[in-house]
Design a protein around this nucleic acid. Structure first.
Length: 209
DNA sequence: CGTTGGATTGGCT
DNA sequence: GCCAATCCAACGC
């Protein structure tokens, strides 16, 4: 039996692949052979007809990997400081991916600490920018094959806990609740302004005294 | 061609 | 709670 998730796993809508990824293990092998691993606990889906997606306005040099075949890593640079990584989903030409937002460190914690400059396990892979930094994933890793390559892949892991659903972080769209995480898992990212669970609509403020 | 702001984070007021 | 860091795609003129 093989532990690695096959191409067919990724060749589905991101909204299906995303929750299914929770519990599986992202493995990253550094150039020197060091193996790092983290259990996925928080992801977000980005679909073709989705204004919040980089792919929404068509293919560009930046997002071309998103339009390639499924099972590849789409890495992009943001805020002039950080990298974020995604697993490409659906079929070539469609433009869809799952953002890997957080993981529980399993192997290579000291290497991750060196990359991150932090010690606490919850500060290693809990957040999309942190996650890529901990695994030493940046521009050179954009486009790597997660199914046949030897740089990074996803192995089958055990599903545990309940899957929670909410709005995506930093995406101003309350109609697509495509963020998925393991309920109560301590390695889920803090999500700055507070985890974007479905927002309540607030009524006009009451009369002042 | 200039401006704006983002699938973020960490440090400081 | 606020903001700087620091690149670049998207959009307006």
């Amino acid at each position: 039996m093989t532990r690695r998730l096959p191409r067919s796993f990724y060749a589905r809508p991101a909204t299906e692949v995303a929750p299914d990824l929770l519990g599986h293990v992202l493995v990253r092998v550094l150039p020197d052979g060091t193996r790092l691993a983290a259990r996925l606990v928080e992801v977000e889906a980005y679909e073709p007809d989705d204004p919040g997606s980089h792919a929404f306005r068509g293919m560009t040099a930046r997002n071309e990997v998103m339009f390639g075949p499924p099972g590849h890593l789409y890495v992009y640079f943001t805020y002039g400081v950080h990298f974020c990584m995604n697993a490409v989903t659906r079929r070539a030409g469609e433009g869809s991916a799952v953002l890997l937002r957080a993981g529980e460190p399993l192997e290579g914690l000291d290497e991750m600490r060196a990359c991150r400059g932090r010690d606490r396990p919850t500060e290693l892979c809990s957040g999309p920018g942190r996650f890529t930094q901990a695994l030493a994933i940046a521009r050179p890793e954009n486009g790597v094959d997660l199914v046949e390559g030897d740089v990074a892949w996803v192995e089958r892991g055990r599903r545990s806990g309940t899957t929670a659903v909410g709005n995506r972080v930093g995406v101003h769209d309350t109609t697509r609740s495509w963020r998925f995480w393991v309920e109560g898992d301590p390695f889920v990212s803090p999500g700055r302004p507070g985890p974007p669970t479905p927002k309540r609509r607030v009524r006009a403020s009451p009369p002042r005294p």
